[in-house]
């Protein structure tokens, strides 16, 4: 069983809001789509407008999806009744969908048991978001779409969302995650896509090991490394090159085939390729934690284990940025850092 979008796009007036998209998401898969807010909204509107269904653009298991009533949609702009309690809210959703379920189990899973009789308006922002996640466990459907589910969430709520995703994956159905953060997409998705004006491109994740081997072949031996007289990393701005001391850099990311240096919560585009940077920065304590990321290990404060397949690194900087850590790199990093 799979969800299929065929050539769906959105044009208003002369402006193409969303290029034509061909997407297939298999059952039990989580497709994470990284996009800016405009493309995210345009993508979501495909599922919210009747004409997408009338034109048979959205198919599940070979059959046309009848309408948005057949899907679960989570969006940060959805709210709850502030004068009700989480317990009453969950029961209300259950009654509306005419499903029997264990309220306590859902509240435990979303870590809301301690506030079950507290009015929703008195809950924290994170608790309110977790309550919204509970909705996905009540509405039994085949297609789940989450828009920015972990945006501005605390660690506990992110973990709760992971558990919720695991529960959804146990049932049959497909999950689409729309996120502005590629890191979150990589962490949560089994397949990751980028959506922009050029359309939808898959971010390759499974080639990590092959890539790693290629990179290893190209890395010179230790002696050669130390023979290099390398001190600065260059980044190009409008009319000048900025030269950074390697240890100033928090992490480096490849984004749309460009190398982005993250320095003090600012981004700078470098003309040097990721492979070259990895070679140059290895002696400075940089580590290729993911195919698209090179992190300064001096900056790493936390290694977060979301599940046995999902890891992240939290950096010790002002915004506590999070960088994905590949499953295959976890053991290697553990040995390297000796923790």
């Amino acid at each position: 069983m799979a969800l299929t979008l065929k050539g769906s796009g959105k044009i208003i007036g002369n402006k193409e809001l969303l290029p034509p998209i061909d997407l297939t998401v298999q059952d039990h898969d989580v497709a994470a789509i990284q996009a800016d807010i405009e493309h995210m909204d345009a993508f979501l509107s495909l599922f919210e407008q009747d004409k997408s269904y009338l034109a048979n653009e959205i198919m599940y298991d070979g059959n046309a999806v009848a309408g948005q009533k057949e899907l679960f949609i989570y969006s940060p702009d959805m709210g709850e009744y502030p004068r009700l309690t989480p317990e009453k809210m969950v029961r209300f959703w259950g009654q509306l969908y005419n499903v029997d379920f264990d309220t306590s189990k859902i509240l435990t899973l979303t870590e809301l048991t301690h506030v079950r009789t507290k009015k929703i308006k008195l809950l924290t922002y994170y608790e309110q978001k977790r309550l919204q996640f509970a909705r996905s466990l009540i509405q039994k459907t085949s297609i789940y779409i989450f828009k920015e589910p972990t945006y501005q969430l605390d660690l506990q709520s992110k973990k709760v969302f992971n558990h919720v995703l695991e529960e959804i994956k146990k049932m049959h159905g497909v999950v689409i995650l729309l996120t502005s953060s590629l890191e979150e997409g990589i962490r949560l998705g089994s397949k990751v896509y980028r959506l922009n004006d050029r359309g939808m491109q898959e971010v390759e994740l499974d080639e990590e090991i092959i890539e790693q081997e290629e990179v290893k072949d190209e890395i010179p031996n230790d002696e050669e490394l130390f023979q290099q007289r390398f001190e600065k990393i260059s980044a190009k701005t409008e009319d000048k090159f900025i030269l950074f001391d390697p240890l100033e850099i928090d992490y480096i990311e490849t984004r749309e085939r460009q190398t982005v240096l993250h320095v003090n919560n600012e981004e700078f585009y470098s003309t040097v390729t990721m492979k070259d940077l990895e070679t140059k920065l290895l002696p400075y304590g940089f580590y290729r934690c993911h195919r698209s990321y090179l992190v300064n290990l001096q900056r790493v404060r936390e290694v977060i284990v979301w599940s046995k397949n999902s890891y992240s690194l939290t950096l010790d900087n002002r915004n506590e940025q999070v960088v994905p850590l590949s499953k295959s790199k976890y053991g290697e990093l553990k040995a390297l850092l000796n923790w």
């Binding site: 679960f72 959805m78 709210g79 709850e80 009744y81 509306l96 509405q139």
Partner: peptide, 13 residues
């Protein structure tokens, strides 16, 4: 105001 209308619509209301 409480942004619950969209949720109700998804619940076929």
């Amino acid at each position: 105001e409480h942004r619950t209308l969209k949720v109700l619509q998804l619940y076929k209301v």
